Amino acid sequence: MYNKYQVGSKTQISRLESVVHDAEGTRIQVSVPNKIVGMFARKVKEGEVYQIKNFMVKRNVGKFRVTNHIFKIELTMKTMISDLMQPTFPKAIFSFKPFEEIKAMQTAAEEPLFDVIGVIVGKGFVKNDTDAKMVELKLEDENCNQIYCTLWEDYVDMFLNLVDEGEMRVCSSNNASKVYLHADIEEIESFRKKS
């Protein structure tokens, strides 16, 4: 979950956004308009399983889409959310994209959000001021392919002390991305063993 702010503001929330998935890994965007954010922000917790009823379905159009699903969900005043106790429901489903495929992409709009996994092997440009924070990291996959990954805002501080040092790059989507560092996740353990 992440807050989407009014244009030009870092404090005025326009919407609460989330990307959810079903048991098969199909991702869809969920939007909560500003006027009802308070109804849902405290009810839901990232990583939990919920049943959602009485929502609107809209076409997923626009320049900054976070999923490639043709629809998105918008919660309303009549939306009902309830906890589901399903311990076997997959909490994290990844859609890893090989670095070579990323480099071959013509535009970032080809696939809005995808996952990458790699070892941090260097640091690029850093901007850390009051207007914006960003850091470029150089990642390497198990085949020694390298790509830059740009992280924004809160992720900058997390990484600045951990790294030493015209092409397509991957980039965190402000607060929409989830970054795992030394996490106990099966895919990360498998990657570590290959590297």
Rank of each mutant, 00 (worst) to 15 (best):
A104K: 10
S195A: 06
K35V: 14
H21M: 06
L151D: 00
Q146Y: 03
M1D: 10
G122F: 01
P98V: 09
K193L: 04
K193S: 15
C144D: 12
E101D: 13
K72N: 12
K193I: 11
Q12I: 02
T150N: 02
C149E: 01
V20H: 11
K194N: 03
V44S: 15
N34A: 09
F94Q: 05
E165H: 14
I117M: 04
L137T: 00
A92K: 07
E100M: 08
N145K: 12
A109K: 08
Y148S: 01
N161D: 04
S195G: 03
S14Q: 08
F114N: 12
N143W: 09
K97R: 06
K35C: 08
Q86C: 15
K103Q: 11
T26M: 10
Q106Y: 14
E165R: 13
L139Y: 00
G118F: 02
G124N: 00
I117W: 02
K72L: 05
F89Y: 13
S173Y: 01
R27Y: 09
P87F: 07
F89I: 07
E101H: 15
D154G: 03
D157F: 03
M85C: 14
E153C: 05
T26W: 06
C149T: 00
N161G: 12
Q6R: 10
V44Y: 13
Y5E: 05
L137C: 00
F159V: 01
R15E: 12
Y2F: 15
K63E: 10
V20E: 11
E74H: 15
D83I: 12
S14A: 05
I73S: 08
G118A: 05
E46N: 03
G25N: 07
T107A: 07
A183Q: 14
K178A: 06
P33L: 02
E187L: 12
P90E: 05
T67A: 10
M39V: 05
K45Q: 05
E187W: 07
M39A: 10
H182M: 14
V170D: 05
E165Q: 09
F89G: 09
V44W: 14
V49D: 09
S18R: 14
S177H: 02
E186D: 14
V66D: 15
Q86F: 12
M105A: 13
Q146N: 14
K178P: 08
E111R: 13
K178S: 14
E165S: 11
G118P: 04
V119W: 10
Y180E: 15
M1W: 11
V116R: 00
K123P: 01
D157L: 09
D22M: 10
N60V: 07
M105P: 12
M134D: 03
K53D: 09
Y5W: 08
G166S: 08
E142V: 09
A104M: 15
F55A: 08
G166W: 11
Q86T: 06
K133V: 01
E153I: 00
G8Y: 01
K178G: 06
Q86L: 11
H21Y: 14
L160P: 01
E110W: 06
L151P: 02
P33D: 06
F114I: 06
I120V: 14
T88V: 04
